[in-house]
């Protein structure tokens, strides 16, 4: 187990394509950090640079007390779980688990002990002699996890490990990964584009975009106070509504200097007028999406013609096409300056 230190790391591909534009990040010992961002934001590249599968163009990566820039993947003492599991198809589950230990010349009885322990933790004991193709997706996922934990590495790297599973299994495995990581206390870096995974798993969330880090923090802190327009639009589902200040009308409250855009979370729009000052939105209901415990309303703002999304608790009995008046407390606004892309308060 070890802390990971990433200092001014850059990745430049041939043809001067800069995939990672200078990243600084400290990951504490035992922490689970999730890298999240849209595809092409560099999150996987960064993970592969930690693993040693991509060269580091500039900067420094430390795992524990060693600079690993020039070390082979094998020498970094990390384990990685791949998106498509990357199990060795010609080896049994046991063979897959043993492979890394045998390569490191671990004594036979130690190998057996560790494989047994990992199989017990992951509940894959009945499948040890099977080949990967005889396993279901969830079982393969467990084997891939098992291959990582038998080695007792200094860090786990997860590269979108749940994206090949169906929604139900994904939820289960998410909980298991978190529980496992808590139990083992191994430093982990987890890459995903799924914000639900990101929000629920992370001790600390790193939101990336275009090869740079947009914001780092506890998931809830990022949700409640996104520092940039990108983070505000990326985190949260349904996504945040954005309205230019010029379209807010006469009743715009005193916003911080430089604000020209406000973000409103769908759940901040309500049917009842809140106490104190409030923003009013005249809208037409365009589409109603009941999702069970809550309802998503797709609305057209009459003043600006913009589409807004509101999230209501319970069921809403408005008819599509009918007018609807919504309210929002000015305290729930997220003020931004579009020229810098940053928050203004």
């Amino acid at each position: 187990m070890a802390a990971i230190e990433i200092a001014s790391v850059r990745k430049v591909y041939p043809g001067n394509v800069e995939a990672i534009k200078g990243i600084d990040l400290s990951i504490a010992d035992g922490e689970l950090v999730v890298l999240v961002g849209p595809s092409g934001c560099g999150k996987s590249t960064l993970l592969r640079m930690l693993a040693g599968l991509e060269t580091i163009s500039a900067g420094e990566v430390r795992i524990g007390d060693r600079v690993v820039n020039r070390l082979e993947p094998a020498e970094r003492d990390i384990a990685m779980v791949f998106q498509n599991y990357a199990l060795y198809p010609h080896m049994s589950v046991r063979g897959n688990l043993e492979y890394g230990l045998r390569n490191r010349r671990t004594p036979r009885d130690e190998i057996d002990r560790r494989v047994k322990e990992a199989a017990r933790i992951l509940e894959i004991e009945p499948y040890l002699e099977r080949k990967p193709r005889q396993l279901s997706g969830g079982q393969r996922q467990r084997v891939a996890m098992g291959r990582a934990i038998v080695r007792k590495p200094r860090a786990f790297l997860f590269d979108e490990p749940l994206s090949n599973l169906d929604a139900k299994l994904r939820g289960q495995m998410r909980v298991e990964i978190k529980r496992l990581q808590r139990t083992l206390g191994t430093t982990s870096v987890y890459v995903t584009h799924d914000q639900l995974e990101a929000m629920t798993l992370a001790d600390r969330l790193v939101v990336m975009n275009g090869g740079v880090i947009e914001q780092v923090g506890r998931p809830i802190a990022i949700f409640e106070r996104p520092e940039t327009v990108f983070v505000a639009s990326f985190i949260g589902s349904p996504p945040m509504n954005f309205v230019p200040v010029s379209e807010l009308g006469a009743d715009a409250p005193g916003l911080p200097a430089g604000t020209d855009l406000v973000g409103i979370r769908p759940e901040s729009l309500s049917l009842e007028r809140p106490e104190g000052p409030a923003l009013e939105f005249e809208t037409i209901v365009e589409l109603i999406e009941p999702v069970g415990g809550e309802t998503h309303l797709h609305l057209r703002h009459t003043a600006s013609g913009r589409t807004l999304i509101a999230q209501m608790r319970g069921r809403v009995v408005e008819a599509e096409g009918s007018p609807l008046r919504l309210w929002c407390s000015p305290r729930a606004l997220h003020p931004f300056d579009t020229r810098t892309g940053r928050r203004t308060d």
Binding site: E72, P73, A74, A79, M80, F82, N84, A86, N103
Partner: peptide, 18 residues
Amino acid sequence: IPNALSEAAAIDGAGPFK
């Protein structure tokens, strides 16, 4: 043969010949 298999083996401590 998927590249990820070779990468997984590299992380598992196998050199190019192995």
